[in-house]
Amino acid sequence: MSREHVLHKVRTALGRSTGQPVDQPPPVRLNIPAAGIESRIAVFCERIEALAGHTHRAASLEGARSYVEGVLAGRKSAASNAPILRQCGITALPGVESGVMDPVALRALCASAACGITGADYALADTGTLVMLASPQEARLISLLPPVHIALVERGRLLTGLDELLSILPFPAEQTSSMVLITGPSRTADIEQILVRGVHGPGEIHVVVV
C-alpha cells in the first residue's frame, strides 16, 4: 500500500537517504549469572510454586510417568510428540492420545482434552519459565487449549534465565515460527484486580523435572 510513502516520510524526518548505512547499535547487554544445576533446579521449582504451579522432581523416567499418571487420573489427554514422553511411557497411559499430526484433528483433540502433556525445549530458572519452540515434536495448542498443562523438562535443559536463553539462541526465528515462554498458569486481574487463574490458557500447570 503505502510502503514508499511511509519509508520516504521516515527518511525525510530523520534526514537520512535511501540505503544510508547505520552506526553500530549499543552492544547487547546479557547478564548470565553462574549457578550450578542443583541451585537452578531449586530456584526454578520455587518460582513456579510461587506462581501457584506444581513441580515434581523425578529421579527416573518411571518416576515421571507415575507422577503424570496421578495427575491425569485417566482423563482424556493430548500428548505431544516429544521423544521423552514416549520414553517415559506417558504416551501409552490410558486416555492419552499422541502422534496427531493433522492440525484440524489436533485442534479438536486439544479442545476436548482435560490435560495437555508436552516436553520443553528449555526452562529458565530465575523466572520459573518454560520455553516451547513449535516443531514437529511440539504443537502450539497442546500447551494452550486444555485446562491443565503438564510439561516434562530434562534437567540438562535448565538455564539460568532469559539472558542465557538468548545467548544460546540468538536467532530463534532460524529454528521455529513460534517460540513461547510460559511462566505459570494463565491469569487475569482485569476485574477489580482480583487474580483469577485459567482465563484462556491452562489454569493448572505441572512441571516435572526429569
Binding site: L106, T127, A134, A139, P172, A173, T176, S178, S186
Partner: peptide, 20 residues
C-alpha cells in the same frame, strides 16, 4: 519479572510444524 506468556512469532507455520 516476566508475564505469563511471551510469544516470539516469526511467520506462518513452517512446513513440518503441526499447527499455527
Amino acid at each position: 519479572p516476566l508475564t505469563v506468556y511471551t510469544s516470539f512469532l516469526s511467520g506462518p507455520r513452517r512446513g513440518d510444524e503441526i499447527d499455527g
